[in-house]
Amino acid sequence: MSGSPADVKLVGNAMANATRRKIMAMLIENNRNKEEIEKAVGASMLDYHIQMLQQAGLIEQKESTLVLTDFGKNFTETRAEKPVEVKKNLTGTKPIDIVEIRQLLPCIADKTKFRIIARMEPSLGGALKLLEPLFPRARYSEKINALIIQKGNVLLTIYSTGNVTMTMIKNQEEATQILEDIRRAVNDAIVKGITPVPREKVKVDHNEIYEYLPKTNCQICGEQSCYSFAIKLVSRDTELAKCTPLLDAKYSTNLEHLQAIMEYL
C-alpha cells in the first residue's frame, strides 16, 4: 500500500463493513484459516469479504492461513476504524477557518431552533481526537471519526472531514459565535499546544439525569418514580431504553441530552 488517496479510500471502504471488521478483529488475535473464520462470520460472501481485505492490502493469504499484512498490523494498532491518520501531536496541523455555514434545518423537537451544517477548512483529520481535552464536555467517537462537543443545550459534531453539525441553535449569529469560539480554541492549541481544560462534571449525578427525564412518575420503567429511575441509571442497574415516554417527539431533545450525559457515566 502506497498510502495514496485511492488506497486510503480502499482501506476506509473495506473497513466500513461489520463482517470485515470482525474478520480483522479475529486476525489481530491470531492467524486463522478460512474454516475458523467461516465458523465465526458465516460462509455467505466470505470469499468476497476476504478479497476486499486483500485488495485493500490489510490481509494476505499464506497457504491456507490468513494473516494481517504489516500494513494491516500497523493500521489496527492505531485502532482507527476508518483510515484517518492518527496523530500524536498537532505539529503540521494548519489553522482552521470557518468557510461555510451551509444550511439551516429546523430541529424536529423544537421548530424555533435550527440544525446548522458548517464547514471548517482545512479538515482536521487525525488531529481531531487530540482536541478532546480542549473542551469541558467533549468525546471523540471512533465509530464516526467525529468530536462531539456539548455546550449547554447545543450539541456540536465535528467530523474529521471538516463538516460540522450543530443542533438547537437559536439563529445564525449564535451559530457563528459558537463556531468562532471553537475556531479560536483549536487555532490557539495549534500555536501554543494543547492545554486540557478541567472536565466539567465528569462524574454525572442522578440529579442531572433527573432534570431531563419526563418527571411523570409513570412507572413504565418498573421504578417507583423518575427520581429512583435516575438513581438506578447512575448505578447502571437499569437502562435508558426502559423509559419509553422519552421516545415521544416532545422529549426528543431530552433524549438526545440524556444519551450524551450517559456517555460520561
Binding site: A6, G12, N13, A16, N17, S44, H49, K82, I144, Y159
Partner: peptide, 12 residues
C-alpha cells in the same frame, strides 16, 4: 474507490 460519507455502513 470513492470517499463515502462517514455515517454510512457498507453491507453485503
Amino acid at each position: 474507490m470513492e470517499s463515502l460519507i462517514e455515517t454510512v455502513e457498507l453491507v453485503d
